[in-house]
Structures are given as C-alpha cells and as structure tokens.
Simulated assay, not measured.
Amino acid sequence: MESTRITAHWLRVLRIKRVFRSIQRVYYPLLAAVSVPVNLMTIAILSRGKCGLSTCVTRYLVAMAAADLMLVILDLMLRHIPIVYWQEFSFVQSFPVCKVHAALLFAATDCSVWFTVTFTFDRFVSICCLDFKIKYCTERTAAMVLWTVAALSCCKNVFWYFMLTGRYLLTNLPWFCGVAGSVRTSRVWAAVEFSHYILTPGIPFVLILLFNAFSVRHIVAASRARWRLRGQGRGACGQTTRDPEMENRRKSIILLLVISGNFILLWSLFIIYAVCYRISTLGLVTVDVNIFVEQIGFMLQLLSCCTNTGIYAVTQTKYRAEVKRAVKYPLDAIVRFVSR
C-alpha cells in the first residue's frame, strides 16, 4: 500500500514536470525574444537623457537595464533554454566551461540585485537627507557606486569557479554545473551557498523594505505639511491649484515603490525554493518543496529581467513619448523610402 502511494506521488510529480517543461519550451524563447530588444531599447532611450529624469537616476536605471540584459543572455538564453531543450543542446555538456559561465552569471545576478538596492538608497537620500543629497546624488557618485558594486560582485563570485566543475548538468537546480558529492554535502559548501543567498537577495530584501518605508514616511509627513501651508490646496475661489512639487514627489515614490515591489515579488519564490533545497540536501531538516514552487520561482525570477521597461512606460510620461518616437522612426523611414 505504501509503495503504491509513493509510486502514485512520483508519477504525479513527473506529470507536473512534463506540463511545466511544455510551458517553458514556449515561455523561455518568447521571454528571450521580448527581453533582449526591450532592454536594448531601454538602455538607448534612457542614455539619451530626454525622459525628464536626473542624470543620477538615469545612471542607475541604465545600469539596471544593462544588468538585466546580461542576465537574459547568461541565465535565460545560455542556461534555461538549453535545459528545456536539453535533447537539442546536449552537446554543450562536452564543453568544460560551466564554472566560468556560473561565475559570470552569479556576478551579473549580484549586479542586478544590488543596483536595485543602490538606486533605492539614492532615492532615500534624495527624499530624506536633504543636506547629504547635494554631495551624494550626483552623476559622479552614481558612477562610482555602480562600478564599485560591479567590482565587488565579480570578486565575490570567483569562488564558484573553484567549487564547481566545468561540466553542465542541464537540470533545473539553483546551480547548473557538476558538483563533487563530497563538496555538495560539506559544511563549507553549505556555508558558502547560504552566504550567497543571504547577500543576494536576502539582505537586499531587508534594505529595500527599510529604505522604502523611511522614504514613504518622510514623503507622507512632508506632503501633509505642504498641504496645510497651501491652504489645503485651494485657491482664492475654492479651486484646487496644481502643485508641481507634489506631483514630482508622487511620481518619484510610485516609480521607486513599483520597481522595488516588483523585484521582491518576482524573486521571493526562487529564494524560498533555493534555501529549502539546500536544507534538504544537507539532511538538516526534511523540507518538501512543491515542484510548483521550483518551476514558477525560476520563471518569475527571469521575468523580472524585462518588467522594468513596462514600469517606466506606465509611470513616466516622457519615457512613453520616447518609446513611441523610437517605434515610429523606422516606420516613417520606410514610408519615406516607399513614397520616393
């Protein structure tokens, strides 16, 4: 009776895996086809500096888009698509470059996550620390912070090169390279891996929530005070007057909260699965993580690589205008060419 129940359970798991594999065979190529041009367009539009954003903010948003583009290439196109099309890509297992790929991928992941943190901190300083804002919220400081984060991310992830093997597994695991059995079950490996997930994205989750909480509290308090000083926002005839400062604050906080919330939401399932999987591997506690959590976690994490463009389009009027101009330009060029 017990063996029958176990067999039924594993058959159900296999059916779920087949369903998700079928979905992913369409989802991942489609996501790649959208993410690459979308991130390239975002980088090009923001770099022109015509979206009404400060040069400091533009630096952070361009860096985030560039990191997302690297993740699309290293994670989605060179990792997950070969996994779901493993029969067609089985030849990659003969290439001993997986540990180099892993080190670059995890470095790009750290950059993507920590660029979001630095952007959140920059907005926190801009909103809550007016005296420090003049010195910190500059294009030069933004460039220095971003290059420092990128350098530290590369240094931090060098250890993957020495802990992994060069052989691809082509299986959906938090890591995707071969690992010696003695290494996988060692406490050193566990400590390194837990540290990796604590630093990315554990601590960033906490920092983003704290910075956003302080920023929102400050904006709400300042808005109430400004509202009272303006006579509850009404003119001499009782008409509501337009307050550009309040509108700018509202747009800034909407952009900040949506980007941060999107990041936390789309990364949560992946980090839950990765930590639970590691605990089970060590045999410390038996944690049964549903296959849905694993597969949806990977899919949502990769989706986060192309959602920021949609966020900009929804929250930034000038960005939408630049997107329309970028889309219309080749069409107008074709029309002019045909009409000659």
Score class of each variant (00 low, 15 high):
7 T>I: 10
49 G>P: 04
187 R>M: 10
3 S>Q: 13
175 W>K: 00
145 V>H: 07
44 A>D: 06
204 P>Q: 03
242 R>A: 11
257 L>M: 15
33 A>T: 10
222 A>E: 13
45 I>D: 01
122 D>V: 04
71 L>M: 15
326 A>C: 12
23 I>R: 07
259 I>K: 15
330 P>T: 03
32 A>G: 12
197 Y>T: 04
219 I>W: 01
239 Q>S: 10
213 A>M: 14
268 S>K: 09
32 A>W: 05
291 I>W: 09
51 C>A: 13
174 P>H: 04
58 T>S: 15
47 S>L: 09
69 L>D: 01
325 R>L: 10
278 R>S: 11
148 T>H: 02
292 F>Y: 15
272 I>Y: 05
95 F>Q: 12
339 S>R: 15
16 I>L: 13
83 I>V: 12
29 P>H: 01
106 F>L: 01
285 V>R: 15
190 A>Y: 11
54 S>V: 00
312 Y>L: 12
151 A>E: 07
4 T>D: 12
102 A>I: 03
123 R>M: 04
330 P>S: 01
167 R>E: 08
200 T>Q: 14
75 D>F: 10
221 A>Y: 08
93 Q>D: 07
276 C>H: 02
255 L>V: 01
329 Y>I: 06
335 V>T: 13
135 K>W: 11
197 Y>E: 07
162 F>W: 13
299 M>I: 03
319 Y>N: 01
330 P>G: 04
185 T>D: 10
84 V>F: 08
58 T>L: 12
